[in-house]
Design a protein around this nucleic acid. Structure first.
Lengths: 218, 218
DNA sequence: CCGATGTATATTGTATCCAATATCAGATCA
DNA sequence: TGATCTGATATTGGATACAATATACATCGG
């Protein structure tokens, strides 16, 4: 077999295409908090019937990205400061443990990739990319943990606070500080100091939460 | 208004009815790991079309209770020992922190209800009720935490390991030990010793994980 | 007899249609 | 004038119908 084959059962169904597009739009902030998502409108936009749209909206609701009310439809669900803080605290609980378990099993390739993320993060002028790079950085470091359930929960949590994360990076010092802290975490991993990596990760996340709080409350 | 009114928009849609029923059936073990869930069959059983059934299955998939493949349908998804262990560890990370935050705000009524759960738990002869009572016990203690996101994640985690939890309680000493540990946790809460409550909770969960591992591998 | 291929059936994915409910503008009445 | 009722329209929930795909079985050639 010379042809480039792949598992077609994982190919995109209409539902997943719509879901991915809407998810991106919400996370990236193109669809804003409180905005109504009309099934008919979305269906026309994607040239499908309302059925896959409804299923996509259902998935978005399960992910907490929209809220729906019977016969009223779906609206993009923002987070209060309290709710966002709680999710940062959720991360602050999980991620230190995840990285602690990952450090002993981390390959040099993973470390190299994490460093590359740092570089790209520091160099990239486009704030729209920062969210992605930040996420790739953390995911890269966590992959070796062998804790897929934790990772899934974290990805979900990240989805919900991504707009806040971006806002926080846009602060005067947000970007520089994140960069500094990221490099500290990588170095702790490189020296196989799991406890230190965990503690730095915890401080990194709680610091982001505090800076968010200060920003919002003035 | 003398009539007993309630928010009808929260009334059960066909989708939620089917979802709740299937969720219960999976959690209670009536539907077993690997079993196929045929849309048509379920639709006939509930006397609805396949649309609400599909939406229920989608929700179950998001909760991790079934796995679906395009054009192949949904099967009840069991957990390997590894996966179950990881979820216990997830709980062991979250629940101590949740109870720590709940202790200072816990009302006497909540403590009384938790104690009542203990009593009912110890007295009830029907193992089918133990899972529910165990869950109500923990939920009661956590409610005052003011951490709804954590609670939601925990409820989801509990759903997935409920069959394992029941199996573990059925062990010779499982039930007695759980009862003892529960009472210890309540007393720590009653004396407002948050750190002790957290530590006991952690030990309680990790102990359950270990006993599960021994049972399965031994 | 064995494996490959074609065909029938079962099952899921999606489109279209109808019913139930919400929303909003105008009419009605104090 | 202003609040309430009433219908028209918009929108969602659910049912039915059709298309795409998988699965099981029969057929055929060797």
């Amino acid at each position: 077999m010379k042809i480039q084959a792949f598992d077609i059962s994982k190919a995109a169904s209409a539902t997943t295409i719509v879901f991915d597009a809407l998810r991106q739009a919400i996370i990236k902030g193109d669809l804003k908090e409180g905005e109504h998502l009309r099934q008919d409108e979305i269906a026309r936009a994607f040239n499908v019937s309302r059925i896959p749209v409804r299923e996509a909206l259902l998935k978005l609701e399960q992910h907490g990205l929209v809220r729906t009310q019977r016969y009223k439809g779906a609206v993009v669900s923002g987070l209060s400061l309290e709710e966002a803080s709680e999710i940062f605290e959720f991360r602050a609980l999980l991620e230190p443990e995840v990285i602690r378990r990952a450090v002993p099993r981390m390959t040099d390739a993973a470390l190299a990739e994490a460093r590359a993320c740092c570089e790209a993060f520091a160099r990239d002028e486009n704030p729209m990319h920062w969210g992605d790079l930040n996420r790739r950085f953390h995911t890269t470091l966590y992959e070796a943990s062998g804790l897929p359930y934790h990772m899934e929960m974290l990805n979900n949590a990240m989805d919900r606070i991504e707009p806040y994360l971006r806002a926080q990076l846009l602060l005067s010092d947000g970007m520089n500080r994140a960069d500094r802290e990221h490099r500290g975490i990588v170095e702790a991993c490189a020296t196989r100091d799991a406890d230190r990596a965990a503690e730095l990760t915890r401080a990194h996340i709680l610091g982001a939460r505090d800076s968010l709080r200060n920003q919002w409350q003035g």
